[in-house]
Design a protein around this nucleic acid. Structure first.
Lengths: 149, 149
DNA sequence: CTTTAGTATTTAACATGTTCACTAAAATGG
DNA sequence: CCATTTTAGTGAACATGTTAAATACTAAAG
């Protein structure tokens, strides 16, 4: 292993992947018992916290691409966890809202998920945890490429 | 939105996602021109840096699950970017090796990808960049759940 | 009012993520 | 040597990631 070339452990993309794996693994396992995926969970939480909103906004907040979201909303609707209706002012849009069933799913899992995150926060230390969040957000806002294309 | 509940920007899973998006976006765009994906690129780089090795080891180093890797290796073989043969000592295993064509792909893109990463490193500051890597690796090693299943 | 441009969402197609079942080959234990 | 267990890799099925094209509707221009 000569040097210079980031030996996978010092590669930011891979480090981000592995960290995400660690964080999401237990949460995924928890949600699997309820029969919903990590992404479906994110959508439900966004709707629970932010109230009814349109898909474009959901996608933005849950960090999902619209084509993915389209399929996810279809499944969530089949499961009865959300409600959808067209926006009467602008019939291109729709208004998506969490259902009572959906809120039950949130209520039944939010605390456990918070416990998992708090556990990680404790292991890392609150200060380092916040620092990590700051750095990640900084990366997000900084952008990467010199050529913004 | 009563309290405590991380409003998406302070959610570690989402922050990890968004940061990864920023980092990989430009690299993905660059690789799209050559017709290979981010994951195929990771596999090629692992093989280029680590030499010939078996799929299980590739999966570990490139942070891919074996079923995904199986398909990726099939495509890389079709494209002529890797070579495969059975391991004669242990006929369950196989030995995967980057081809001359594969090395050309690496040579043609590695520098640009390093430039992109260096650019990010500069924007963030070398110290903060290293700190971010340390924190991410710490998350990876710390684990998350109290119940290790 | 009609054409044109733009916006919100969906569909399509291909690649990967993820879990589980399965095959093949080695290692182990009688 | 044979049955059992373990390991390496693949196949299958479903969900999402990702890009490009298509739809439906609105807004703007003429």
């Amino acid at each position: 292993m000569s040097r210079g070339l980031p030996s996978t452990s010092r590669s930011l993309p891979i480090a981000l992947l592995r960290a995400r794996e660690q964080v999401m693994g237990p949460i995924r396992a928890m949600l699997a018992d309820v029969g919903i995926t990590e992404q479906q969970w994110r959508v439900l939480r966004v709707l629970d916290e932010g109230g009814a909103m349109e898909p474009t906004r959901i996608a933005d907040m849950a960090c999902l691409l619209l084509p993915s979201l389209t399929r996810i909303l279809q499944k969530l609707e089949e499961k009865g966890l959300i409600l959808r209706r067209r926006d009467e002012d602008d019939r291109r849009k729709q208004v998506v809202q969490i259902s009572a069933e959906g809120q039950k799913v949130i209520a039944a899992n939010l605390e456990a998920s918070v416990v998992l995150m708090d556990s990680l926060r404790a292991r890392l230390g609150a200060a380092r945890y916040e620092l990590l969040l700051d750095l990640l957000n900084e990366v997000h806002e900084t952008g990467t490429g010199p050529s913004r294309d």
